[in-house]
Amino acid sequence: MTLYIKHMVSLRCKLMVKYELERLHLKYIRIELGTVEIEENITNAVKQELKLNLAISGLELLDDKKSILIDKIKTVIIEMIHHSEDIPRVNCSYFISQKLGCDYTYLSNLFSEAEGITIQHFIIKHKIEKAKELLLDNELNLTEISHKLHYSSVAHLSNQFKKITGSTPSIFKSLGELRKENLENL
């Protein structure tokens, strides 16, 4: 039986789900971002208890098909940007459509209706979060970050970065370095 869990986006979330499954004596086959495959079907009472326990951790057990599909879209995007070594070179809409086996127009309309933003805007927000992470890691320069995230130019990345964060990448990076210095001087 496959269960779908909303907001499951990190290793910490996976560990929390594993803990709750073990607490309820549910044997699982695998735990992935957004999904858990368990060995047997569970009763509604156990499902409700799991749902309540996950909610305490900020996770949500999904029941309806549209919510599950929206969560799958988010998971594909998060994995693509944050958990893969390199973002695929293909068009994101094509990648998402192929990964989920659904028409992109349908996915896009469903996502926009439910989330209030487009899939493209969701992707941009996550690419900027990844850029922030890479800037603070201090291992890549802005040109390399721009290339890694498949921006057409550094200017394009900088413009989107400023729209989302309100500051330029260089100001963001210098503030991050200043915070590190202040912490080191405590």
Rank of each mutant, 00 (worst) to 15 (best):
T2Y: 15
K6L: 06
S10I: 05
L11D: 06
R12L: 04
V17Q: 00
K18Q: 09
K18F: 02
E20Q: 10
E22T: 09
L24N: 10
H25L: 05
H25C: 06
H25V: 04
R30S: 10
R30G: 15
E32A: 11
E32I: 06
L33P: 02
L33H: 12
G34H: 03
G34W: 01
V36Y: 00
V36N: 00
V36F: 04
V36T: 03
E37H: 08
I38Q: 00
E39I: 06
I42M: 10
V46H: 11
K47E: 10
E49I: 12
K51L: 09
L52E: 10
N53Y: 10
L54M: 03
L54E: 01
A55V: 04
A55I: 07
S57A: 14
E60C: 10
E60D: 10
L61S: 07
L62W: 03
D63Q: 14
D64I: 11
K65C: 12
L69A: 11
L69M: 14
D71I: 02
D71W: 02
D71S: 13
K72G: 01
T75L: 14
I77D: 02
I77V: 14
I78G: 00
E79T: 13
E79L: 09
H83R: 14
P88S: 14
P88G: 12
N91E: 12
S93T: 07
Y94W: 05
F95V: 06
S97P: 13
S97R: 13
Q98M: 03
G101F: 04
G101R: 05
C102W: 10
D103M: 13
N109V: 11
N109C: 10
L110R: 06
F111C: 03
S112F: 13
E113M: 10
E115T: 09
E115I: 08
G116S: 02
I117R: 07
I119P: 09
I123Y: 00
I124K: 01
K125Y: 02
K125H: 00
K125D: 01
E129T: 00
E129M: 01
L134A: 07
E139S: 08
L140P: 01
L142T: 12
T143G: 05
I145F: 02
H150L: 13
H150Y: 12
H150R: 15
S152L: 05
V154Y: 12
V154D: 08
S158Q: 08
N159V: 00
Q160W: 02
Q160F: 02
K162A: 13
K163P: 08
I164A: 00
T165N: 03
G166T: 11
P169T: 07
S170N: 03
F172S: 03
F172K: 03
K173W: 14
G176W: 01
E177P: 01
K180H: 14
N182V: 15
N182P: 15
L186N: 14
L186C: 15
